[in-house]
Simulated assay, not measured.
Amino acid sequence: MSQMDPHDRINLTGPWAGFGFQGDHMFTPEGHQLEPCDMAWWSLTCNIAREWRLMMAEARPRPTRSLASGKRCATKDSSVVYLREYVRIRRERRLGMGDPGAGADVSNVVHMSRGPRRPQRV
């Protein structure tokens, strides 16, 4: 039976190729060293990445079928997603904002200001 010395570098294989362990640390393929406490954030990072992928997939135009050939063809801008515009539209839908329409009343919101400023010393 062979013994593994935890101070020898152990390289992982398969989809984890390039990652490795040595002592109490994990190493990335780029050579970054990860402490055990750093790994507590993996779940959050994976969830953020998953949400990003879903948001980008929703923002992309769907491919359409060409009537003549029956093949799927993407629209001209299918690879470009304008994130700022997508997030603005999504926020407006969620908050019920957007174009109020022709029959909407003018808002009577008063914007407060600080008043006149004193002269500043130079």
Results as ranks from 00 to 15, higher is better:
Tyr82Phe: 07
Arg50Ala: 13
Ser69Ala: 02
Tyr82Trp: 01
Met56Trp: 02
Met56Pro: 00
Thr75Glu: 09
Leu44Arg: 08
Leu54Trp: 04
Tyr82Ile: 05
Val80Thr: 05
Arg65Ser: 14
Lys71Arg: 11
Arg72Glu: 15
Arg60Thr: 13
Pro61Gln: 02
Ala57Ser: 14
Glu58Tyr: 03
Ser69Lys: 00
Glu51Asn: 07
Gly70His: 02
Trp52Arg: 08
Lys71Gln: 14
Arg84Ala: 13
Arg72Asn: 11
Lys76Cys: 12
Ala40Pro: 01
Ser43Ala: 15
Val81Met: 00
Arg50Leu: 15
Met55Asp: 08
Ser43Lys: 06
Gly70Cys: 15
Trp42Met: 15
Glu51Leu: 10
Ala59Asp: 00
Trp42Ile: 15
Glu51Lys: 07
Ala68Glu: 07
Ser66Asp: 15
Ile48Trp: 12
Ser43Pro: 01
Cys46Leu: 04
Glu85Leu: 11
Ser66Lys: 05
Trp41Arg: 05
Tyr86His: 08
Ala49Gln: 09
Met39Thr: 04
Pro61Glu: 02
Cys73Ala: 14
Ala49Gly: 04
Lys76Arg: 09
Leu44Trp: 08
Ser43Ile: 12
Thr64Gln: 11
Val80Gln: 04
Asp77Gln: 11
Trp52Glu: 09
Gly70Arg: 03
Thr45Asn: 03
Leu44Tyr: 05
Arg53Phe: 01
Ile48Asp: 03
Met55His: 10
Arg84Gln: 08
Pro63Asn: 00
Gly70Lys: 06
Ser79His: 05
Leu54Lys: 09
Cys46Lys: 08
Met56Ser: 03
Ser66Ala: 15
Cys73Lys: 10
Gly70Phe: 13
Trp52Tyr: 07
Val80Ile: 07
